[in-house]
């Protein structure tokens, strides 16, 4: 493969994009670091340096620890459930049947929609008194849980809506994994009289694993930012559902404490960047493996 140098042209092509990205990512990051050492507020001037006081406060703050734990729980449970259901749906969709294209497209629609708008609409469906879900549950004699107001249930309602939105994503990638397995392997397994479970555990699962890994990482970095659904379903300042992003919003935009919020933001960014690095490494390895094939 011959690649020419290209001289000024190559920089004219890639330059504007890279400059914009640096301007909108590196500059705010540096500014964020600066702000995190001050007592800046959203309104008013005259921020003074406060040294590392903001960071000390963050580590002492039980709200931060709780939001961190809650976000971690959210990522693990939501992504885990989406993976299992999505994989199950993909297995059910493996064979062709009439109307498959229609069913598949309908199943995929939720992930393309706006979380803020759909979250708001789900709060009508989940309403304890007049929501559709409880009307159905009551009809089946299953009781009427207070999805939006019960302290212990609110968090799981948000997980539920997230699962509704993002299971299709897992299904889509699992389908790609399944269709990449050559049928000859299954034929060989059948000749060796491997049972259904053995075939699944020894062939289907390991051969889908690389793509599923990518899906899990992509979803996890996304779930880590969870904000839209929390805002739509309970608001940012709810003790039962406050994720890291919701806490950040509360501190900066409701309490107006920009300095403190910036210190929080830096700590969140450290976590996100760690995960993003894992993701890009994974993509790099996956692509390397493809090139060899």
């Amino acid at each position: 493969m011959r690649t020419e140098g290209g001289g000024a042209l190559r920089w004219a092509l890639v330059g504007p994009t890279l400059l914009l990205l640096v301007a909108f990512n590196v500059f705010p990051l540096a500014y964020n670091v600066f702000l995190s050492f001050t007592n800046a507020e959203l309104v008013g001037e005259g921020a003074r340096s406060v040294g590392g006081a903001n960071y000390a406060r963050v580590f002492d703050d039980p709200l931060f620890a709780a939001a961190l734990r809650r976000t971690a729980l959210f990522v693990v449970v939501a992504v885990g459930v989406e993976l299992v259901i999505g994989f199950g749906l993909a297995l059910a969709l493996k064979r062709d049947f009439r109307g498959k294209a229609f069913v598949l497209t309908t199943l995929l629609v939720p992930m393309m929609l706006s979380p803020a708008v759909m979250g708001l609409y789900w709060s009508l469906i989940l309403n304890g008194n007049y929501g559709l879900l409880n009307q159905v549950l009551a009809g089946l004699g299953l009781g009427e849980p207070q999805w939006l107001t019960d302290r212990d249930l609110k968090f799981w309602s948000i997980v539920l809506v997230d699962v509704w939105m993002w299971t299709p994503f897992m299904m889509l990638i699992a389908l790609a994994g399944l269709s990449s397995i050559p049928p000859s392997i299954y034929e060989a397994a059948a000749i060796d009289r491997a049972g259904a479970w053995t075939t699944f555990r020894r062939i289907t699962l390991p051969l889908c694993a690389p793509l599923l890994g990518l899906a899990v990482l992509l979803r996890a970095t996304d779930a880590l930012k969870q904000f839209d659904l929390v805002m739509a379903i309970t608001g940012p300042n709810d003790g039962g559902t406050q994720t890291l992003s919701a806490l950040l919003y509360q501190i900066v935009f409701r309490d107006g404490k920009v300095g403190l919020g910036s210190a929080y933001a830096i700590l969140v960014l450290v976590v996100v960047m760690a995960l993003a690095t894992v993701f890009t490494r994974y993509v790099d390895r996956l692509r390397g493996a493809e090139a060899v094939r």
Partner: peptide
């Protein structure tokens, strides 16, 4: 490195970078 830098910008949580952008 540039390509992975480009990709990694996607992972920034809006709430963590919005304050400097807003002040700017």
């Amino acid at each position: 490195d540039w390509l992975f830098f480009v990709l990694s910008t996607r992972f920034m949580p809006p709430l963590a970078v919005v304050v400097p952008v807003l002040l700017m």
